[in-house]
């Protein structure tokens, strides 16, 4: 979990989130905002991040294989997609974003509202990966 230690860090993160939504639109800005809060202890240490992603992938793959995809699975896929972006794994980002897009359409309701997010990622996954990594580097620097 990304720990926001101080009130100032919290305020910076919130300002970032608002700015990202203004700059990149609601759909993509909302996803970038979640990158800031992605819960991985040491988010730019690749081995550790990959190990976390492997662990997180297991319940998601299990749910898909047993056809028991629930709202928590979609949250898991979302988290995995963001984590893979931070890890620089564009292929996995495309896979997860495609899966999330299809499932969000099937689920409907609030999940259907997230469809534009996944469409935005799939239009240019390379940019999403690059920007996600830059956001994390920047946040680490401050």
């Amino acid at each position: 979990m990304l720990t926001v230690n101080t009130r100032i860090q919290q305020e910076i993160a919130e300002a970032f989130e608002n700015g990202l939504r203004l700059r990149y639109g609601e759909a993509l800005g909302a996803l970038y905002s979640e990158v800031l809060r992605y819960r991985a202890g040491n988010f730019l240490e690749v081995d550790e991040l990959r190990a976390n992603l492997d662990t997180e992938a297991v319940p998601v793959l299990r749910a898909i294989l047993t056809n028991k995809v629930e709202s928590s699975t979609l949250s898991g896929i979302r988290s995995l997609m963001i984590g893979c972006a931070i890890a620089g794994d564009q292929e996995a980002v495309i896979r997860w974003a495609t899966e999330e897009l299809n499932r969000a359409r099937q689920f409907g309701g609030e999940w259907a509202d997230t469809v534009p997010q996944w469409e935005a990622v799939l239009r240019n996954p390379g940019d999403f990966v690059l920007f996600a990594r830059q956001l994390k580097y920047f946040l680490m620097a401050i």
Partner: peptide
């Protein structure tokens, strides 16, 4: 799967 590593 392309979503997990060999190691994982």
């Amino acid at each position: 799967t392309a979503t997990m590593t060999q190691r994982g």
